[in-house]
């Protein structure tokens, strides 16, 4: 009877194994990238930009507001509105959440990259039109 396990068999088996493990690693990496939460800033129902929470930065939102990202947390550091609700809101981070500045129609929210700009504006749709105007007064 021929030899059960030749050297070529070992090579074949190991290369299949390597391919599978390589795919697992690649997928894990890719999905981590996708699942990393990011900060979205939406102004007037339009997406202004998506920002990584990893790097600290200060973002000017229009003339009126300044948003700050530091240590994986994001908050509104300055706003010209009278109520200052957004400035007093708790910082938001990887756990999710949103900060809304109604007078200036700004929404900061945490999204996972899987969600795209299109579907992520649904929160602002709640405040759309009359509702927003009446609240903002």
């Amino acid at each position: 009877m021929e030899k059960l396990l030749r050297k070529s068999d070992i090579v074949l088996i190991l290369s299949i194994l390597a391919l599978a493990v390589g795919m697992l690693i690649a997928f894990t990496h890719a999905s981590r990238e996708i699942r990393t939460p990011r900060l979205q800033i939406i102004v007037n129902n339009e997406l202004m930009g998506t920002y990584s929470l990893e790097e600290d930065q200060t973002i000017r939102v229009g003339e009126s507001n300044i948003c700050e990202i530091k240590g994986g947390q994001a908050w509104m550091s300055q706003a010209d509105c009278p109520d200052q609700i957004c400035v007093r809101s708790r910082p938001i981070g990887a756990g999710g959440g949103s900060i809304v500045c109604l007078p200036n129609r700004i929404v900061m929210k945490i999204v996972e990259a899987g969600e795209t700009a299109g579907e992520s504006t649904d929160i602002t749709e709640l405040f759309e039109g009359e509702v927003l105007d009446s609240i903002a007064g």
Partner: peptide, 11 residues
Amino acid sequence: GVFGILGISSA
């Protein structure tokens, strides 16, 4: 003709 039954079967 290069591979044995174990390699062929696992592939």
